[in-house]
Amino acid sequence: MREVMTKTMARNVFYGGSLFFVVIFLILSAHSVRYIVTESTASVELTDSVAAGKHVWERNACINCHTLMGEGAYFAPELQNVMARWGVEDAPEDAFDVLKGWMDSQPSGVEGRRQMPQFNLSDEEVRDLANFFLWVNKINAQDWPPNDAG
């Protein structure tokens, strides 16, 4: 083997390596998209109410305190599995009632406890948010959160 690399050899290594990694990138991207579409999300059950609940989540900046599938601030509990923790993941009307009661009781005023602000959401906004949490609860989060408490 030669001790000196010529310009042609360097160019061939560059183009060959670049082509190899572009092909690997495209294969991994296709695999990720296929996984997300077919296995990860519950996209079949995505409704206008779920989308509206996501807008309520964003409009009120809930992610500034809570996490959703590990994304967000760690000031307040993880909410990916909140409906399962409350035991209402299969009952949309119960999910609305529990979430409405929780939201109406805030701030709780318990001494020494972090306080959630009162957002004064309408019943429709709370219902949309509950539907969003029900939908998020059905996503295959690959064992996230690591414990049931969120």
Rank of each mutant, 00 (worst) to 15 (best):
R34D: 11
G87C: 08
S40D: 11
F25H: 10
S40W: 10
G87F: 06
M116V: 09
C65W: 03
Y15D: 09
V4R: 04
Q106K: 15
A52I: 05
A10Q: 09
N120M: 14
R127N: 14
H55R: 06
C65N: 15
E58K: 08
A141F: 09
R59N: 15
L129W: 00
E58L: 11
M9Y: 12
V136S: 02
A91N: 12
L28T: 14
V136K: 03
N131I: 06
S122A: 07
W86M: 08
W57A: 08
K54W: 02
L68C: 05
M103I: 10
V82K: 00
W86A: 14
A73F: 03
N140K: 08
Y15E: 13
I63F: 13
F75K: 15
Q118E: 12
N60K: 14
V50E: 07
L19T: 15
V110E: 14
P92K: 04
A73N: 15
P145V: 00
R113E: 15
V88G: 01
P77R: 06
L79W: 01
N60Q: 15
A61W: 07
W86I: 01
M103A: 04
F75Y: 14
A52L: 11
Q118M: 09
S18L: 13
P145T: 02
V110R: 05
N12P: 00
V23F: 14
Y15H: 11
